[in-house]
Amino acid sequence: MKLSKNFTNPLAANNPVIVQILGICSALAVTVKLEPALVMGLSVTFVTAFSNLVMSLLRNGLPSRIRIIVQLVVIATLVIVVDQFLRAYMYDVSKQLSVYVGLIITNCIVMGRVEAFALGNKPWDSFVDGVANGLGYAFILVLVAFFREFFGSGSLLGFKILGDWYTPNALMLFPPMALIIIGCIIWVHRSINKDLQEK
């Protein structure tokens, strides 16, 4: 597989969130504000990239009977590494993300990419695939968080954008709005990429 296609595919045409509909749960939870969404996106990118790399390196010696357990151990370890570093060096953000960092372990994208890609491809390809899928996820998260923070709080990254005349739309802060926004993004995406439309 071409490396460049390997990288660009998950960003748009085969985006994990809006095409494969994976990782929706955390997209609902951390997209109220832009900053946590950004850090969450980068954390997931780190975890998908390195779990893909490690699993690809291990793939030849891996007993297939316990491969899911090994995948979970590797992913959980990487998530704890992220969590510990955030606590030590980005304490405020780590407090904002609270439990959601730990919940990266359960993000379907991470295990999905290890299972579907890393176990059958070379380490470097797998690493690129992990980065690309993580960024594809991060991009959607940031897009959703942009709309939710802008209309829900009238601010972006905590800075007030809309003046006092704007009454924040509290509906945007509820999780269902994230789902509706993702739905709208999928709608736009499919109307542009006609080959994704079911006949």
């Binding site: 109220v32 946590p36 829900g152 709080s153």
Partner: peptide
């Protein structure tokens, strides 16, 4: 005041 996991925005 601070919290462990209250709903953001609410």
């Amino acid at each position: 005041m601070d919290h462990a996991g209250e709903t953001p925005g609410l």
